[in-house]
Design a protein around this nucleic acid. Sequence first.
DNA 1: ATTTTTAAAGTAAATTTTATTGGTATTATA
DNA 2: TATAATACCAATAAAATTTACTTTAAAAAT
Lengths: 153, 153
Amino acid sequence: MEQLDPTDITILRILQSDSKKTAKEIAGILNLTSSPVYERVRRLEKQGFIKKYVAILDKKLIDRSITTICQVSMRYHNEAFIEKFEKQIQELAEVQECYHMAGQVDFILKIHTKSLEEYHDFIKSKLSKIENIGILNSTFVLKEIKHSSEFYI
Amino acid sequence: MEQLDPTDITILRILQSDSKKTAKEIAGILNLTSSPVYERVRRLEKQGFIKKYVAILDKKLIDRSITTICQVSMRYHNEAFIEKFEKQIQELAEVQECYHMAGQVDFILKIHTKSLEEYHDFIKSKLSKIENIGILNSTFVLKEIKHSSEFYI
DNA sequence: ATTTTTAAAGTAAATTTTATTGGTATTATA
DNA sequence: TATAATACCAATAAAATTTACTTTAAAAAT
């Protein structure tokens, strides 16, 4: 694995919090000119350190106020069932994240909906239609204490 | 609340998945010229629909391979304790997300570390040092089935 | 039905940023 | 010491952003 020097790390930190910063602005922070910054960013993209650039939307304003954490356990743990479940989850637009977990619960999902009613519809008409779900436990987010896509590097 | 028309929604969908798309490229998809697209994007930023633009890094390459979901319950539920907990969590760089939940468990945290060992250190020397934590339950992500910052709009 | 108003889109030019190239200094290597 | 590699700087071309202004089309008012 290619190593990151302190300049690379500073660039990654900046772009994690604001990807609209120009090469020139970053160069100002680093006491460099924009060319080496530009070249490093391109290299970091090419090497895969930077996967993509995205816009983060305001959940409330786009009317997706309800965040739910849903914990799912399967009835049977055959490879075939698990794989099918994973595929079906990927198709559900309401599911923003899904992790296969170690421990009691098999999967943890993060789901965004307009309302509790829409969440109810989601469970009734989409999630619970998936074969082989044993236990399904939903808890609602009362308050977002911290929420970011940044990694500490 | 200001309403979004179909053009706005298309723009938001595109920028959620790739914020490097130029106004011209988006205009091509929408059969428009770049100026109205540019003006709409500026408006969507100003109105707050777009909160920020960020770079998404590769967890593995930057050596944050271990993702842990940690469920925390408080011993006492005074407002003062809760607020102090929230403040302290916000300071912890390893914690990427933290939600105050309805139900049995008070908080759910998503934590990224280099290794299990580093996670252990985090629990021992940082998280469990916070006053008033009752139950603390950690489960590890075996596989990311789905992971995105996009909302379905 | 015609005119007025308004909002959205188009056009074009300026400014800024991105992207490329060539050259220099520094450091490591043979 | 000579050579190669690396990282940076400077200059410039290409492209995108940003601004100002004009046109178009739809809705509202006369």
